[in-house]
Design a protein around this nucleic acid. Structure first.
Ligand SMILES: [Zn+2]
Ligand SMILES: [Zn+2]
Ligand SMILES: [Zn+2]
Ligand SMILES: [Zn+2]
Lengths: 150, 150
DNA sequence: TGGTGAATGTTATACAGTAACGTGTGTTAC
DNA sequence: GTAACACACGTTACTGTATAACATTCACCA
């Protein structure tokens, strides 16, 4: 995520939490900032390292609790295949999300195609399965890396 | 996976490895058997417990190496959201796979819809991303649990 | 018969996540 | 005011997941 996107994400988070009556505390705000400032998905312990560099006290529950709040609010996503977190690029609407993970540069883009989501719900329903939420992580080459050599 | 499915999976694995010139050793075969014999996804350390019950020596790398081989051969799948493994229900053709995970009974079904897969590839291509492989895990209720109370 | 590479054994460690309990702080009820 | 309460955060300890690094064994072939 770019620096200006990061500032925009923080501003959006402020507004959303204000509107929802939830508390974006200093710690939660800082964790969101760390996640959004990272160009690539970042792990919980890497976030913790940054917090400690800040001079804060900190242990794993510190960061996991903040991340739980941010996940609930839809401000960050967790990538199950990487055990890492990224900022949501459009948090106003809660969504499962589909993620494009570049195997060359490590960047992650968010897709959020309703066609894909609905197609999955329908395909599941066709075999009697009632889909509630879905996790879609796509590995490949991003536009910038697409034509690079192996 | 049912017992007869398990036997069939082992037989299919023998044939595939034979045809490919890869070695389905005693250990790898036993790990595949353990995974296929489990009605639900099974974790690496649970597999390790079974191996030890067999009287084998064993440490985490033992089972992770066997699983790496089975994953490469497309004989098992890893469910990233559960950190667990299941036998592939039709290993002849390599595939990313789409998984239907029941939140009530814990069973997992394999979907493998080409429509879904192709839809994802197209949606990714539309934003310049070249998809190589995809991970789709769908949470909800299986047909048997669909109408059960919460 | 000795060399080569693959598979496995073994030890140690890194990384991910949670349980349980204590502490401070602000808000509400009386 | 102050007692009661809910919530966020600090702290310790632990469980679970996965890998690095090196030693050993074994199958196969020159
Ligand atoms: Zn998002
Ligand atoms: Zn890239
Ligand atoms: Zn499969
Ligand atoms: Zn079920």
């Amino acid at each position: 995520m770019q620096a200006n996107d990061c500032a925009a994400a923080l501003a959006a988070a402020e507004g959303l939490c204000e509107a929802r009556g939830t508390r974006l505390t200093e710690l939660r705000r800082r964790v969101l900032e760390i996640v959004c400032a990272s160009a690539r998905p970042i792990g919980a312990y890497a976030i913790l390292d940054v917090l400690r560099d800040d001079g804060r006290p900190g242990a794993p529950p510190t960061v996991y609790r903040a991340l739980d709040f941010l996940l609930e609010q839809g401000l960050v996503h967790r990538l199950a295949s990487l055990n890492a977190f990224i900022g949501c690029s459009h948090p106003a609407e809660h969504h499962g999300g589909q993620f494009l993970i570049c195997e060359r540069c490590g960047c992650v883009g968010e897709l959020d195609s309703h066609e894909v989501e609905d197609g999955i719900v329908r395909a599941a329903a066709a075999v009697g399965f009632a889909a509630r939420t879905q996790m879609v992580e796509i590995l490949g080459r991003c536009a910038a890396c697409r034509d690079a050599p192996a």
